[in-house]
Write a protein that binds this DNA or RNA. Structure first.
Lengths: 225, 225
DNA sequence: CACGGCCTCCGTCAAAAGGGGGACAGGTGA
DNA sequence: TCACCTGTCCCCCTTTTGACGGAGGCCGTG
């Protein structure tokens, strides 16, 4: 089974280079080349490749936006490997959030590029070592969800979890009541029960618990705080 | 410059296997083998290797704890590559938090193990593809700190940030006052100012803001929630 | 069916939080 | 020097929160 690839880069020379490196492998086929983000999307829809090698800096929609659109399209199964010359944190973050399966720098040795393509085609993910390092660093620093804490969530009933979630969005009892279509008295009952079950004192501690347990996560809320 | 390595695994056969694979490379030297976590630490102190290949399951202190001790010892410069048969989330999390530079499964092909060792010796980091995938997933899902939100922290004075931090630990006004050695009235003044400056309504929203802005982070608090 | 858990709602009450004033000392910079 | 910010503290007042006890309806299990 051959791996079908589209190369997206605004520089023709770079495209040819990648095509040459990968084209020599007999289990890899370059099915198309794109010079812009729009082209990349269009060609992906036509050719349905397994992998798109995506440059970030491109005219007419950059590679990150194109990545997002390709990954989110339910009709496409393409995985995206982002290749770029620079690696500022922001690019990496956006690329990973956009759903890229890999992130390599353009100075990666050809052999590694080829093995990266195979890894990603096989469902894996791959990052440049320097990036992996940073990712680990920020991941370790950020901390993980403590399983023991998360388990205490199980003591709550569904309704209580719903109330806690609402409280952790910064809603007052009155607002939670409106949100859940019940009376304020009911919300109060639930909150008392939550605090009691979790051994907390007030709603601020409940909010902290919600974050620490993973019930709510940073960066996912829509409120304008 | 040769890369000096210690192999730590409780099974002699496994140790020999790794030693054989790596020993053939002329830029890699196996300087010692350890069968327990304690041995790994002791031998690391003696031989000062560049890298410790660490198994997780070992008698007398497991590999994760040993990793932590080795990485945190300021006199040692060794980097740890964790090698294990299984890859439950918990192991990965703990290993990365312990400060491991890499995490590979034992079914990794010899060639990749060798290149992993070189990568790590060169200051990089390396994870098994399947693990990278999970790491990316949880990283992307967890979300990032919104810069625009973080900037609003700058509007606060130092004292106000201190108060907000305390509030975000779940302390009441009274407790915050004790913590900062001021009167409750002062805490109230600060909080009013915080809410006003950030456009928030009450302390629960302030706690949320503290998390979303990165002022406090999940997994780093010591309270028992 | 009887029991228990869950969800819903009441009333009452005390404590906590928050708003809106004002005041004063120390420091900083125009 | 004077205006301004910061940090400290005070009083008074309203709103919110949370505790406690009670109660009815629904539903699944023994």
């Amino acid at each position: 089974m051959t791996i079908r690839i589209i190369v997206a880069d605004d520089q023709a020379l770079v495209r040819s280079g990648f095509a040459m490196i990968l084209g020599n492998e007999n289990d890899i086929d370059i099915v198309a080349e794109a010079g812009t983000g729009n082209q990349a999307i269009a060609l992906t829809k036509i050719h349905k490749p397994d992998i798109v090698l995506m440059d970030i800096r491109m005219p007419e929609m950059d590679g990150l936006l194109a990545t997002e659109k390709i990954v989110q399209d339910p009709e496409l199964a393409a995985r995206v490997l982002v290749l770029t010359t620079f690696d500022p944190d922001e690019y990496i973050y956006r690329a990973l959030q956009a759903g890229a399966s890999g992130f390599l720098l353009k100075d990666t040795p050809p052999v590694e590029l080829i093995s990266a393509v195979r890894t990603i085609a096989g469902g894996g993910a791959l990052l440049a070592p320097s990036i992996t390092k940073r990712l680990i660093g920020s991941f370790a620093k950020r901390g993980f969800i403590d399983e023991r804490i998360a388990k205490r969530l199980e003591r709550l009933t569904n309704r209580e979890r719903a109330v806690l979630t609402a409280v952790a969005q910064g809603l007052s009892n009155q607002e939670v009541a409106s949100e859940l279509f019940v009376e304020v008295a009911t919300v109060k009952t639930h909150i008392s029960s939550i605090l009691s079950k979790l051994g907390l004192r007030d709603r601020t501690q409940a909010v902290i618990f919600a974050y620490e347990s993973g019930l709510v996560e940073t960066g996912t809320t829509s409120h304008g705080y």
